[in-house]
């Protein structure tokens, strides 16, 4: 019983992100509407971003800005006192890039609507097969 509880406490954050990721993946696979697929793609991206940020967390550490913490500018800097900055750097750029790619995805959805007058995937496929 104690083992299971410890497992839950240590790993529950990963399970939350996997759940979010699977919601996004399900939307991409099963939803019929193209905009809903794009929303699913964004949920999946958000899950990955949260996963990366949670990797950087260290217990008892603070934000990776040296001056502001533990009077850091005056004595030797110990890495355990600051959270891992690397995942934050990677996700910082990924968030903005995901907004830009979301724009491109929506543009393609708009062009699809202008061409087929629908956003439902099965109707688009039907129109492509029977011109």
């Amino acid at each position: 019983m104690e083992d299971i509880l410890r497992l839950i406490i240590e790993k529950y954050n990963y399970w939350i992100y996997i759940t979010l990721m699977m919601i996004g993946l399900y939307a991409i696979i099963a939803k019929n509407n193209l905009v809903k697929k794009i929303v699913g793609m964004n949920i999946l991206q958000t899950a990955v971003i949260l996963f990366f940020v949670s990797i950087g967390v260290k217990r008892g550490a603070t934000v990776p800005i040296i001056e502001h913490a533990h009077d850091g500018a005056h004595h030797a800097i110990r890495a355990a006192e600051y959270i891992n900055p690397l995942p934050h750097v990677l996700m910082l750029t990924a968030i903005v890039v995901s907004v830009a790619t979301l724009g491109v995805a929506l543009v393609i959805a708009i062009k699809t609507y202008q061409r087929f007058l629908t956003l439902e995937e099965d109707e688009i496929l039907k129109q492509i097969r029977e011109p």
């Binding site: 790993k11 950087g56 800005i65 040296i66 500018a73 890495a79 600051y82 891992n84 690397l86 910082l92």
Partner: peptide, 30 residues
Amino acid sequence: FADPESPASLHVSPRYIEKSLDETAVPNVV
């Protein structure tokens, strides 16, 4: 979760945290 000894926190990032203020004069490591 929040393990200071996790592999991701032991490989490159200590180098950045300990040296970046001396090497670049920028307190914000990110």
